[in-house]
Amino acid sequence: MVVAQQQKAGTFQVLVGKIDDVLQYAIGDPLRYLANWGRLYSLWPVHLETACCSVEVGAAAGSRFDIERFGTLEAFGSLRACDLIIVMGTVTRKLAPRLKLIYDQMAEPKWVIAMGACSITGGLYFDSYNVLRGIDDIIPVDVYVPGCPPRAEALIQGIVLLQEKIRRMPTLSGR
């Protein structure tokens, strides 16, 4: 009898002790799904043009490719409202600290798309004295879109990939 009571209390304590796990199982998953679903189709990129790839971003936002169909709004000025940086090409030594600053100012969760050969490895400018060989040294990158410049379709594919990643994101907070 006593043993049984003790056992019961033990179970209860275990239950209380793992309450966040339980909640995680009970409502966390649907909540995460809901939150991620909400983020998925309202990506808002920062307006940061770094080099010539920005022309293709312009074309992708234009009426022919119309990137908004896939739930990405046009580039926007306020960093606080943005959750996506599309690094449009070469990052030079002068821009690199600014890029980091911009990334740090953005609110979590945030994602980065490295667009173009330049932002992935330095591309054509591998032997230039003023170009960073890839941006992943300074900020974490979620999706790489190769090309020089990538076609607008490639950028759209990159965004769809990123959305897939967001959909499967394991935590609520982002990273």
Partner: peptide, 11 residues
Amino acid sequence: AGYVHRGEEKM
């Protein structure tokens, strides 16, 4: 200026 200076002339 200079945010996109990539040193084309040296290259």
